[in-house]
Amino acid sequence: MSIVIPQNLTPGFANPVRDAQQVFRAVLEALARPTTPQHVNVDMLPPAPLGVTVGAVILALCDEQTPIWLDPALRGAPEVSAWIAFHTGARIVEQVDDAAFAIASSPSTAPRLADLARGTDEEPHRSATLVIDACCAPGIGSLKATGPGIPGVAHWDGAGLPNEFLTQWQENHSIFPRGIDLILTAETAVLGLPRTTALNAHTDEKRNT
């Protein structure tokens, strides 16, 4: 691995306090109101292939107390690890189940939910948060979401979810209070899927009008 000296790194938040607050509030609202995108607006240029919004989420939430797992594409770019280490002090881990935050640069490279740390019944908060860069990802179908934060039923196209995700998510949902929380990031928005959200495929059988 080549040594990257900090001078070559792109800067983090232009305004660390306010940007972190703004990004956190968007993530908080995203997890509190699942499937509703929350606007994020930061001016930043993290090293490719790390997306802007993913980078912002990492800077807002991670520090030396949160081991981070990166997908192969991100790990393949040494500037990404160096950028994260320089700006947050977070440790990059090899084993996905050691991570507090797992970062995937695209839906297809996301780890299986069952491989991540899912917490224990006594300490369900010690589970991983999965962040997927879902920038420009297509929808995977018609989904119905229910649960806390959603008044009634929310209809969602599932853009940014990995393939064959539904069964994984239903399993993740069924082990409540344990489970993974998911954050999907787009170019200027974040979308949350906490473990409490029930996802089902939407069938249009009754809609004949």
Binding site: F24, L28, L31, P124, P148, G149, P177, G179, D181
Partner: peptide, 17 residues
């Protein structure tokens, strides 16, 4: 703030815990 924020996110994900 980050410590509190992370706890808040997990709190929202596990209502009442």
């Amino acid at each position: 703030k980050r410590v509190v924020r992370r706890a808040l996110l997990k709190g929202v994900a596990i209502p009442g815990f």
